[in-house]
């Protein structure tokens, strides 16, 4: 989507631009010659997750996540006073997602575009059921997510949800449990976990699942493409099976951040 308002104060890129096409890009098939995934993963493997807190020092809580090529920074400012709106007895959750202009193969507009809102909405839905909003009357919880690099849209939403819930915990916001998310794509009769962009383009359907593993509940499902009911249920099962491992990563990151804070206070 083109930016609706043209900002003259910026160095604007050319009106139309195209990404360079390299020779090896031309045949970017998701499978190697020996029928394996390109990055050597097995179908049920996730990309390794790197997660840390305390990236943005001025925010109440923040987190940085890296899964493969996907890199996302998240900052939480909360609780903030809700000004110029009428009284509300529960808090309001705001999620804003912004893709960096250099985050994708095509340059992103510096203003908000439609996709940002869709992704923000998905992260919002993943987090909303977990946060105890009734403890924050008259206030808002603002979550700002910056996608630095994007590889696989569903994976991006999943990683953003994980980073956001870690940042919320870092900010000391009360939640029912940590939210983790995971995605899967269907290619022929097999299920690929955590697909990258080329795999997602080849697949006929994808499913994103977010939930609270500590309670065994689901907070968000998002499915697109054509799959049968049986396949959708299978995808949900395999995504859910990964939740425990992701949860361990998140818990470890929070423990580390707590230790770092204690060390800082002691010094």
């Amino acid at each position: 989507m083109a930016a609706p308002a043209f900002d003259r104060r910026r160095v604007n890129g050319p009106e139309e631009s195209f990404p360079p096409i390299f020779i090896d890009d031309e045949r970017l098939e998701p499978l190697n010659s020996d029928n394996k995934r390109r990055d050597g993963r097995a179908s049920e493997d996730l990309r390794p997750i790197f997660l840390t807190t305390g990236l943005v020092s001025q925010a109440n809580g923040s987190a940085y996540i890296e899964t493969g090529n996907t890199k996302i920074a998240c900052a939480v400012y909360a609780p903030r006073q809700l000004k110029n709106t009428q009284y509300s007895d529960i808090g309001r959750l705001n999620v804003e997602v912004k893709f960096a202009p250099f985050s994708s193969v095509r340059r992103r507009a510096h203003l908000r575009d439609v996709e940002d809102r869709t992704i923000g909405q998905l992260v919002h839905q993943s987090l909303l059921p977990a946060i105890q909003l009734h403890l924050f009357p008259k206030s808002s919880i603002d979550v700002f997510i910056t996608v630095i690099e994007n590889d696989g849209l569903e994976g991006c939403v999943a990683s953003a949800s994980i980073a956001a819930s870690t940042a919320l915990a870092d900010a000391g916001i009360e939640m029912d449990g940590m939210v983790v998310a995971c995605c899967a794509a269907l290619y022929k009769d097999r299920i690929w976990m955590d697909p990258v962009t080329s795999e997602r383009l080849a697949a006929r359907g994808a499913l994103l699942l977010a939930g609270i593993p500590a309670l065994g509940t689901i907070t968000n499902i998002w499915q697109s493409g054509n799959v049968t009911t049986k396949e959708a249920l299978q995808c949900i099962e395999v995504c859910y099976a990964q939740f425990k491992d992701i949860h361990d990563v998140v818990v470890e990151a929070i423990k580390q951040s707590k230790r770092a804070k204690e060390a800082q206070n002691a010094a």
Binding site: G216, T217, W222, K230, I236
Partner: peptide, 22 residues
């Protein structure tokens, strides 16, 4: 013949237990 899924969304602030979902 079973139906084909073309989309699935979960909306709202509630949680659904995994056991009920299928």
């Amino acid at each position: 013949k079973e139906g084909e899924f073309m989309g699935m969304r979960l909306l709202g602030p509630g949680q659904v237990p995994m056991a009920y979902l299928s």
